[in-house]
Design a protein around this nucleic acid. Structure first.
Length: 261
DNA sequence: ACAGCCTCCTGACGGC
DNA sequence: TGCCGTCAGGAGGCTG
């Protein structure tokens, strides 16, 4: 699923393919995926141009020539595809932009958990949203202040986009595995040293993910992601990983290394 | 403010 | 083979 490094790939992809082109026409498959509504979204985007694209966490912000902004979120199954022939349109295309030079950009989303929104004022949008600091910009001080003393399971806070924007389910599992901390640990029971470890692992994992452009095969061998599936075994112990549910999220752990306090 | 639960959606998968 | 029930999961909204 698209988390910070995957969404960064989409950012570069959109930047490399679609900037500067004028949108001639667009098709919206399901009105619920566009905010504030199909009609307004469509009217604001038509004849407009993408001028630049930035990212915070799992959100893309596509700046438009009229001063507005298109916010993109990819949910669980979102993706982008740029092509020149209509017959190359991928399955599950939910929004299709046709540029005046005849090329296309498709927003694909099989399970419709993603969405696109038109915002007149990005600053105002961000001020009203719960979106926090991108995980790459997060400092230990911010992280420590936001999580220390909290009663929630540590995994739930790692997934909280107002704390470290961009961390999703696989990255959270990876951080906890490499930190040797059980996802259900009450955050307030963690020592400062453990919070430091979580922070360092978070930074390192994101750094490697960005450097390899989320190509998991290039991740170091000890990473959980290589074995993060039913029947997978722990790189360190050779014993089976187990799947538990924490805060409603499927979580893979190595039970002899990640022990609940 | 915080924690926890529910909802949205649909392909994949297992059981019969 | 085919039908049906169950599951996954990010984020936003609601509740206590």
């Amino acid at each position: 699923m698209p988390e910070l490094p995957e969404v960064e790939n989409y950012r570069k992809y959109l930047e490399g393919t679609s900037l500067g082109k004028t949108i001639g026409e667009l098709w919206i498959d399901d009105a619920r995926l566009t905010k504030p509504g199909k009609k307004i979204f469509s009217n604001r985007l038509k004849k407009n141009r993408f001028t630049s694209v930035s990212r915070i966490g799992k959100y893309l912000f596509v700046n438009l020539a009229n001063g507005g902004c298109m916010v993109m979120h990819f949910g669980l199954t979102g993706n982008l595809s740029f092509f020149n022939n209509r017959e190359d349109q991928p399955k599950y295309t939910r929004v299709l932009f046709q540029f005046t030079d005849g090329s296309y950009l498709a927003y694909i989303c099989k399970r419709k958990f993603g969405w696109l929104s038109y915002e007149k004022n990005l600053e105002q949008y961000l001020a009203n949203s719960r979106l926090g600091i991108d995980a790459t910009q997060l400092t230990f001080k911010d992280f420590f202040e936001k999580i220390s003393g909290r009663n929630a399971p540590v995994k739930s806070l790692l997934l909280d986009q107002s704390i470290a924007a961009g961390v999703g389910n696989w990255i959270a599992d990876e951080i906890l595995y490499q930190s040797k901390i059980h996802p259900e640990t009450k955050t307030k029971s963690l020592e400062r040293k453990e919070i430091r470890t979580l922070f360092n692992k978070l930074k390192k994992i994101i750094e490697i993910s960005l450097k390899t452009e989320a190509n998991y095969d290039k991740f170091p061998k000890h990473f959980l992601i290589h074995n993060r599936e039913p029947g997978g075994k722990c790189y360190y112990t050779g014993k089976p990983l187990i799947r538990i549910v924490v805060g409603g999220r499927g979580s893979f752990i190595s039970p002899t290394i990640q022990i609940k306090k």
